[in-house]
Design a protein around this nucleic acid. Structure first.
Lengths: 275, 275
DNA sequence: AGAATAGTGTCTGTAAGACAATATTGT
DNA sequence: ACAATATTGTCTTACAGACACTATTCT
């Protein structure tokens, strides 16, 4: 228990053998969300390898801590690992937004060994179809409404695609990711990360409606968004055309520099009435 | 890439050797906060062992994934590990609140090897002085204002007790923990977790003032708290005495059953004017 | 013309903040 | 009595939601 000096510190580190300790592995898993045809969708892969071979799962994998043939230590930060695994398994780039969600460490969550996973939330703008690779036999954007996740609060045990549950504890991770996205729409400009560089107020409203799963009043939303400082900035341009069946052309906006929305756009209070 | 069946899944697991993979360790570190003499304070330990021997640090340590002599695998969830390490190193129990904060995995954050740490936020009610144990040479409640963490946003590199920086990246973890606590006071009844089962509105206000580092208007706060459904419930009792230098006796309240405050108690907008 | 969509006006109820006044209690 | 603290009242301003209305563009 005595406190040692710099020399002892050096000796200690020289004698330390990592391989003697702690048989645990670390993975990253990403809840990648996008809007496709107006529907909030999540990127899932079909696992090619055990455990849970054949199950749908969130894209992810082991954080690299390996030594290469040259003996050089390949080490990546957790964020880098999440982006790498996402691209390896699906070809999708998390170029719009990436944030850490939470870490899941139930000792029984992986049958191989003790695996803790650091989950991420990613948003992707107008993505192509995924191309499966690595340990993924398939990859697909899946509308969240098709999964059996009634609300973010419930869920946990549920969560299926084509009737099957998700691998590991991925249903809970997905539910947590959805809840994070819903909450952050309220008090941050996160919704703009679902859209390209220029967008209309109606497109922004469509993001809120898809993520929250409820209708938003067009007039009040319009006025509200423009009244929040730094949320959006006018470009002076308007859309090329009005709506497909008529309608006025809309102003185009860009994301502003606000990090936080003051005042916030609060969700309507009533519980999870999807649609 | 082919998808295997249940038999292959069993064979795979039987042949899997965890020790062949992934030299990485997982620790937990806890930002334990309390109110002492009106000052928001954090529990710090002085490290007895390298690395960073002699430095002040957050209490924490390795998640147990060891095999015992009997060959039985001792595995604990991350929350359990956080509580165990806190008690081992300081004697303090995180009995009032414990939540996961974030996970830190910079490859250079620990000189021994790749160590990722899962950070927790704990709140403790009216705690005793800590008793150092385990790898801790000392342990102490330290007023947050004494550390060189100007605001939660700044900080990161700074953070000291008696002029020394904190070990590892603990200054950033502490800053993130403080920001989490400040934010959650706004929209959850977290403030009640700093207090005993019965408290006055003034005591609750003292929590907000200590955590936010700013004065709160007594009259408006009082009315506001009582107007939020489920935040507090009246006990019908009043305090034994008024203030030490005179003053009316206060009603006693208990925490209500609300999980979220509607409407929220928003922080005053202006930037980090402590005190 | 008529439908569809964008954008604005107006009203009402709720809430936040400033400030003041009243109610009790200790010295 | 006086200072200190708890609690309530009042007023002003801001904002959310409902609803109605105007503006523009497509078929």
């Amino acid at each position: 228990m005595s406190i040692t000096g710099p020399d002892e510190e050096r000796e200690f580190l020289a004698a330390y053998r990592p391989e003697d300790y702690h048989p645990v592995a670390v993975t990253v898993d990403t809840v990648a969300l996008t809007l496709r045809g107006g529907a909030l969708s999540v990127l899932l892969i079909r696992r090619a390898m055990p455990p849970f071979a054949g199950f749908w799962a969130l894209p992810g994998g082991f954080v690299r801590t390996d030594k290469t043939a040259s003996g050089h230590l390949v080490e990546e930060d957790l964020d880098e690992a999440a982006m790498r695994e996402l691209t390896e398994e699906t070809g999708i780039l998390a170029d719009s937004h990436l944030e850490q969600l939470a870490t899941y460490g139930d000792p029984t969550r992986d049958p191989r060994m003790r695996v803790i996973t650091v989950a991420y939330l990613a948003l992707v703008v107008d993505p192509p179809d995924p191309v499966s690779g690595g340990d993924a036999a398939d990859a697909a954007w899946t509308p969240v409404a098709e999964l059996n996740l009634a609300t973010a609060d419930a869920a946990a045990g549920a969560g299926a695609r084509r009737g099957r549950p998700l691998a590991f504890d991925h249903a809970r991770i997905l539910a947590d990711g959805l809840e994070r996205a819903r909450a952050k729409l309220e008090y941050t400009p996160l919704a703009t990360a679902f859209l390209g560089p220029e967008f209309t107020i109606a497109e922004l409203r469509a993001v809120y409606e898809a993520v929250w799963g409820r209708r938003v009043h067009p007039g009040n939303f319009h006025r509200k968004v423009l009244s929040v400082p730094g949320f959006v900035v006018e470009t002076g341009q308007v859309t090329e055309r009005g709506g497909p069946r008529g309608g006025r052309r809309a102003q185009l906006y860009r994301a502003g520099d606000a990090r936080l929305l003051h005042p916030a756009l609060l969700r309507p209070a009533g519980e999870g009435a999807e649609q």
